[in-house]
Design a protein around this nucleic acid. Structure first.
Lengths: 164, 164
DNA sequence: CGTGAAACATTAGCGGC
DNA sequence: GCCGCTAATGTTTCACG
């Protein structure tokens, strides 16, 4: 949970793996001017300390038929609880659990401001979005109000975090 | 740019690599009940057709000192152009180019609705955010107005797209 | 941190369904 | 067309200096 201290070499390694997560350890070692074994030890340390959370392949949405990206702000009914007792069936807990099962929703954060949640939603087209709204999101008992915006153009979208 | 047709095995492979992008080809092959060579041929095809765009390591923001996540809506001054001539210095073009250089901004989309852009911004804390706003974002000549919200809780955040 | 060696993975060519 | 075998080459990984 705490911050992990990183030296210059660690940061170099992270910068490389944030850009190309499938480079061989040998290749990484070469780029940071280390031999393979200390480089691997560092990478293992970064994995075990939780700095590197996961390795993934990123797909191109438009190549798999996901032509529309929406951000949806959601307001829930009276938020009665923050951390209800087990089995408490709070609106917020219910909503969070549901979101997990909706594959169109790739991100969901509880936010400050007027609305309670911000969702990022990938769908094929407006018809698919409409179906998702009518048959899934708006049917959820806890949902009071939603406001949607649609992406017109991607200017930037990276998973690479700034290394401070 | 067009959609790539995927059969059931392709989708299985993508589901696996979206979750663990560093699995060996052998391991993937085993999980989809194929021998290594046809499996590798499929993965190569998915890479070359642009379905798999990139492999990356995902880092935990809180482990590297990025304790605050903000979404910032930005409105620009009068949008005069959509695709200006070379060297036209339009507000939108200028803004997009700047965003690319700001490492705190990991995502930026032009959006429908009142505001022109939605930014996702990772910073250390409120002080860092404040500095980013005062010294960077609000100093940009094209920026007219901003509205920020802050993440209170991550409910879900995945890079795995739904495979339709 | 680096070396070296065993275990393991990748990849291209070829034949078969 | 797509699958699977084989064999050469390259990579990972760990005990040890």
């Amino acid at each position: 949970m705490a911050r992990v201290p990183l030296d210059k070499t660690d940061r170099k390694i992270l910068a490389i793996l944030q850009t190309d997560g499938r480079l061989s350890n040998q290749e990484v070692a070469e780029r940071v001017s280390l031999s393979p074994s200390p480089c691997l030890r560092r990478i293992k340390r970064l994995e075990e300390s939780g700095v590197i959370r996961q390795y993934v392949a990123l797909l191109a949405p438009e190549r798999i038929g996901l032509g529309l990206l929406a951000y949806v702000n959601v307001r829930l009914e009276k938020h009665s609880d923050a951390a209800g007792a087990a089995g408490s069936r709070s609106p917020r807990g219910d909503f969070a659990a549901s979101v997990d099962h909706w594959p169109e929703v790739v991100a969901c954060y509880a936010m400050t401001g007027e609305m309670d949640y911000l969702l990022r939603v990938h769908v094929e087209d407006m018809e698919h979005f409409s179906r998702f709204m009518m048959e899934t999101l708006l049917r959820h008992a806890a949902v009071l109000d939603v406001k949607s915006s649609f992406a017109l153009q991607r200017v930037k979208d990276t998973t690479a975090l700034p290394l401070v």
